[in-house]
Design a protein around this nucleic acid. Structure first.
Lengths: 172, 172
DNA sequence: TTTAAAGTATCTATCAGTAGATAGTTATAT
DNA sequence: ATATAACTATCTACTGATAGATACTTTAAA
């Protein structure tokens, strides 16, 4: 893993625990074994780092979801796949969804970060709409909104209560 | 409004926009017209301020909700009342739910703040369980979890997309 | 094929600004 | 007189950011 990738990973862990202000160049530099000034070589500003972090997170998330048609072709329910990905993010990493937390902080984010967070939800809603449509839902667009809202909310409250069983109950 | 109340109000606005790290003693002191050192007279530490903020927010929220039995006696649906309170918080104030945002940041909060955030959701779930029970739901506890998760998630994503119509769609 | 230039990745040193917090002082009001 | 609510002054720690130097690697030109 390159230093740049390591910096992004270190930042991701901290942001997913406490939001955009929960990491500093010094902290993540220490963790990967360079000086804070050197972080600016890879990311001119903190906003640049935050934006790239959200962008890559979104790409990785959508990549992990895969293609709706392929899922259907395997006789699987894409909504179950989606739910499972959220569940893993919470249970395995024991952390919030990066873009969920950043989204809640929207108004205090730099513009370029805000834009990437919006991209995450736009793409998620598009994927879910396609999924519900493939499932024969009568209102796929509305169902998509309900799905992502419920999952993000359940995740948030599971963290607030520090109780993973909450998420399981909310998504069963 | 006393200085102390004004400090809490100023802090609340900032926290609801960007989380616990989104306000400083200096900022809120300037806003109410005192010096940052004087804030420590009212709140020994920032954690004390945060905890009292979340506590009062919770009390005000539950007070605004009112009593389930009285709502039912007026032939109103308490779940509609609950939804409407969330909607107003978002549409009128144009801000996130304080405890929703803090809950997502859970791991980076001081202990006493974390405790108050947990109290918010515990009390919300109890109120909703009673409400769903009064509505004759077969699984009031489960319904309560779904209700608060959906509303918090819809609120979060409305902020992320900067689009209030999203919340309306999610809650119709 | 050697040389020159450019790019990569880091360093040290430093900056102005802000953070929360403390000690000790002063004014005001009961 | 005492408690309340503010003040001034100051502290240490941390923030993101910049300047300038160094070593190493890669590319391009003579």
């Amino acid at each position: 893993m390159s230093k740049k990738e390591a910096l992004l990973k270190a930042a991701e862990d901290k942001v997913r625990l406490g939001g955009y202000n929960n990491f500093s160049f010094r902290e993540i530099a220490n963790e990967v074994g360079i000086k804070s000034a050197s972080v600016h070589y890879h990311f001119p500003t903190k906003a640049d780092l935050g934006a790239e972090l959200a962008h890559q997170y979104t790409n990785a998330f959508l990549n992990a979801l895969g293609d709706v048609d392929e899922i259907k072709a395997n006789n699987e329910n894409p909504i179950d796949v989606y739910t499972q990905l959220f569940r893993n993010a919470l249970l395995t990493d024991n952390k919030m969804c990066l873009c969920g937390l950043l989204g809640a902080q929207n108004e205090s984010l730099p513009d370029k970060v805000r834009l990437e967070v919006k991209r995450f939800f736009d793409l998620n809603l598009a994927w879910l709409e396609q999924a519900h449509s493939a499932n024969g839902e009568s209102e796929p667009s509305h169902a998509a909104i309900l799905t992502v809202s419920l999952l993000e909310g359940a995740m948030m409250i599971s963290k607030a209560l520090n109780d993973h069983s909450y998420f399981k109950l909310a998504t069963k």
